[in-house]
Design a protein around this nucleic acid. Structure first.
Length: 274
DNA sequence: AGAGATACCTGGGAGC
DNA sequence: TGCTCCCAGGTATCTC
């Protein structure tokens, strides 16, 4: 389930693989997705050349030589592979983009929450207008304790909900919010407006540290996520609380619990997190 | 307006 | 074995 480290991992791999490559042909096998894959995708891609790959939040944009951009979001189960035609098409591979080096950019998405479209207008290196509402990048200098402290004032919602709110800070989902809150020693149900400035500082520091380590490990593979070469993200080996309900806390030995927040599971140690 | 709930989707696992 | 039910979760959209 791609969060920021997984999108960044795929983005880095695609930047090396796609930049400079010409698109020879596009095949759409199944148009059904979060927004239906349009024939426009084929028309706007064929004959174009990729000039680079950028990431913002969990989105990637592969820039094209006409100024437009191929916009990608991996939803929950989106996987990109770079393989030759020798490998048979998998059941949920919906799009093939044939490159001039003989490889195929294959887009797979069993749960069909992904997005793949070419911008209507040239982006010319900018972000689509819909990105304007996104919050700060958690690995930028703008993300700090002060930012979280300001964003949390007057918020009646939980700190878990604050951390996963894309308008506050982007790219943090269920896995990395759980790990961040554990590292910071803060209970996920704590009211955001009651956080102290020091706690906000700890949260920002822990979040950035965990995201950096996860990127270095090639992301987290719980079930679906794979890098473009099929390899798994190794950060799963370092998860302290996520998905570990009923097991012992690696720090104090207390049993890790799970609760439901905003229709999602949260994992925490009742002893270490207050 | 802000916050929570729900729909979207399919594979996999639990339970009977 | 085979059926049903539930859960996973990012995002858009709905409701209160």
């Amino acid at each position: 389930m791609p969060e920021l480290p997984e999108a960044e991992t795929i983005g880095r791999a695609l930047r090396g693989a796609l930049t400079g490559r010409r698109i020879e042909r596009v095949e759409i096998f199944s148009p059904k997705m979060r927004t239906p894959l349009a024939p426009l995708l084929t028309a706007r891609l064929e004959g174009r050349r990729f000039t680079g790959v950028r990431r913002r939040a969990r989105y990637l944009v592969a820039d094209l030589d006409d100024g437009r951009g191929l916009l990608m979001h991996f939803g929950m189960s989106g996987v990109v592979r770079l393989e030759s035609a020798a490998v048979p098409r998998r059941k949920h591979e919906h799009v093939f983009i044939y490159l001039d080096d003989g490889r195929i950019f294959r887009f797979e998405c069993p749960r069909r929450f992904s997005l793949l479209e070419v911008s209507d207008l040239p982006l010319d290196g900018k972000w689509p207008s819909g990105f304007a509402g996104f919050g700060v990048e958690p690995l930028s200098d703008d993300f700090c304790g002060d930012h979280l402290f300001r964003a949390s004032r007057g918020r009646k919602t939980s700190v878990k909900s604050l951390l996963t709110d894309n308008r506050v800070v982007v790219g943090i989902g269920n896995i990395y919010s759980a790990e961040t809150l554990f590292a910071a020693g803060i209970h996920p149900a704590r009211c955001a407006s009651r956080l102290t400035r020091a706690e906000c500082g700890r949260l920002a520091e822990c979040a950035a540290g965990i995201l950096r380590r996860a990127i270095a490990d090639g992301g987290t593979t719980v079930s679906d996520f794979r890098n473009v070469d099929g390899s798994e993200g190794k950060f799963a080996l370092h998860l302290q609380v996520y998905g570990r309900a009923g097991k012992k806390c690696p720090v104090c030995g207390e049993i890790i619990r799970s609760i439901r927040q905003c229709g999602r599971s949260s994992f925490f140690c009742p002893h270490c997190q207050k």
